[in-house]
Computed example of a mutant assay.
Amino acid sequence: MTSVSPSDREGHSSTQSSHRLLAYSDALISIIATVMILPVAHTKVEDNEVI
């Protein structure tokens, strides 16, 4: 069985933390984008309005 040094364990932990942070930021950006799009999807455009 191979021994794992504390620095190896810390490296894995920081990698896992960075992946969690990336997943969290991706989810947050997706939620913000969805909320920003919702009002536009339900906006009614009149026939006489110029786009």
Rank of each mutant, 00 (worst) to 15 (best):
I31G: 02
L22F: 14
I31T: 10
D8Q: 15
S13L: 11
G11P: 02
H12Q: 13
V45N: 10
I51H: 13
A23W: 06
T34K: 10
S25C: 13
P39R: 05
L22K: 12
Y24H: 10
A27W: 10
E46Y: 15
V35P: 02
D8L: 02
M36L: 15
S14L: 13
L21A: 04
Q16E: 00
S17K: 12
E10P: 00
I29M: 03
D26Q: 08
G11Y: 15
G11R: 15
D8H: 08
N48H: 12
A33C: 08
P39E: 07
P6W: 02
N48G: 05
I29G: 05
H19S: 00
E46I: 01
N48V: 01
A23F: 09
L22E: 12
M1C: 05
I32D: 11
T15H: 09
I32Y: 06
R9G: 02
D26I: 07
P6V: 01
A41C: 04
S3M: 04
V35N: 03
H19Y: 06
L21D: 11
S18C: 00
D47T: 07
D8R: 13
D47K: 15
Q16T: 05
I32R: 04
I51T: 14
R20N: 13
T2S: 10
Y24N: 04
Y24R: 11
I51P: 04
E49Y: 03
G11W: 14
M36E: 14
A41I: 07
A23V: 08
A27M: 00
I31N: 08
M1R: 11
I37D: 02
V4K: 11
S17M: 09
E49D: 09
S7G: 03
S14H: 15
A33Y: 02
T15K: 09
P39V: 06
H19T: 00
H12E: 06
S17N: 03
G11F: 14
S18D: 09
G11I: 05
L38C: 12
P6Q: 08
S30P: 02
V40L: 13
I29H: 10
L28G: 07
H42W: 15
Y24K: 10
I31L: 09
T2I: 01
S30V: 03
S25N: 07
I37M: 06
S30I: 01
M1K: 13
S18E: 09
H42S: 12
